[in-house]
Design a protein around this nucleic acid. Structure first.
Lengths: 233, 233
DNA sequence: CGTTCAATTGATACGGATCAATGCAAGTGG
DNA sequence: CCACTTGCATTGATCCGTATCAATTGAACG
């Protein structure tokens, strides 16, 4: 008996492609893990031992260069898949940005199971292809966009994931959400410094595009103009 | 009867996971296509209609932002897989950097075939995971590295793919190769301008780390120091 | 020998990094 | 309840690296 039926991401994680009995078998291999904010789940350069699904919370993938400057490679949300199956090494760290819950498997066990379940591999392939698309789009941002556009793009991306006030895009009602990232996290993600991020947010506030009631909350007042900023150079 | 048996990438492309009869079936769906240097195979924003394998030559994936500034997302070599299976859109262009030969399939036909051949999907998954790893490493370069390090990293990457004089790393013999990319291509890949790339190459030459007998040829004289430059900030 | 186009070199401007100080909110202990 | 600490965010002043603008060189080709 497994409790995947009650799992928050049952329908959206890669497991959705498994039936009840297959789910039982996979579940037997995995275990739930709770992570506290700031806790590192996988270290850069580790042997790839763990893979899993995000159930709750937000995590980041990051690498750091020789001098300690860090670059965040992606933000992972519930139902996202984490880790590097079918390969010996993980070349980035996985760190919890909020308290989080993940459903983990030993990589070897997961690999073996996946090889026997093509539907699961197909789901994983789909997800990996999408992640590759997303990552490639981020390269345009890092390679070519100015600081304003980077911050605007980031806020739009977060608002689309988080909006409590879900509009159809055409609406002009303000959208508000809480960032799970600190200013440093945002800087690491956008390839900027903390000061530059702060200044850009200030500009957006001064221009009446957003409001910042507190450090973590963002209210998007004019998503049209925010989009315009996002596509500037 | 197919001629995949004589294909240059028979053992390294994703098709390696198919047996003779499966290969016949896949081959029946595909066709060879010859591309001239500079020719665009897929346009950014196109409906995703084509996928395929690179047989010969070098191609680039690229996106361009609103203002026309271009960012190259990756360089594809023989045996690499091109295109976006299992998805409706391609959000980047594919352009031949040299004369090239590719083996293409209509996406719908390929998708259907792949769904029936788990081994093929597994190969594709492996390849996609590796490409994602590579792309993520490139993000560190674009987000955090200075111009010198970017150019040095690029030259090292190319030398590892191209070296005619294959050493075991420890050797000090010069390694020489021809770049398939123009200075503009390199700039687009590294998120720099053509002038900055040129200056960095000049510096490396003045420092005795490389030689440039002509515009396209690079001779690496001191790969140790080149590596040091690559990991600087 | 002139034309053409890519690459190089030079001079200057500007955006973001860096260094430094201040502000602000949450916790801690007296 | 209020001083004090602590950690993050903001703001300011300055510097540096790369972009930008502009001119020159050099190789390929007719």
């Amino acid at each position: 008996m497994n409790d995947c039926g009650r799992c928050a991401v049952r329908e959206s994680a890669i497991c959705h492609s498994l039936n009840e009995s297959e789910l039982d078998a996979l579940n037997a291999l995995g275990r739930h893990q709770t992570l506290k904010r700031g806790q590192t789940m996988v270290w850069q350069g580790d042997e790839s031992l763990l893979v899993g699904n995000v159930i709750e919370g937000v995590l980041k993938l990051s690498v750091s260069g020789a001098d300690g400057r860090e670059q965040t490679l992606g933000i992972m949300f519930p139902s996202d898949f984490i880790g590097r199956p079918f390969g010996p090494k993980t070349d980035h760290s996985v760190v919890a940005l909020t308290d989080a819950q993940v459903c983990t498997f030993r990589r070897s066990a997961f690999d073996e199971f996946a090889r026997g379940h093509p539907e699961l591999e197909h789901s994983l392939l789909q997800r990996t292809l999408t992640e590759l698309d997303r990552t490639r789009q981020w390269m345009l941002l890092l390679g070519r966009k100015a600081a304003t556009a980077r911050v605007a793009t980031f806020l739009l991306e977060m608002s689309s994931r988080y909006a409590t006030n879900c509009n159809d895009g055409a609406s002009t009602a303000p959208i508000s959400f809480d960032l799970p990232l600190s200013r440093q996290d945002i800087a690491d993600l956008l390839g900027l410094t903390i000061e530059t991020v702060s200044r850009q947010i200030t500009h957006l506030r001064e221009d009446g595009i957003i409001e910042t009631p507190n450090r973590r909350t963002i209210v998007v007042l004019d998503s049209g103009r925010l989009q315009a900023r996002a596509s500037e150079v």
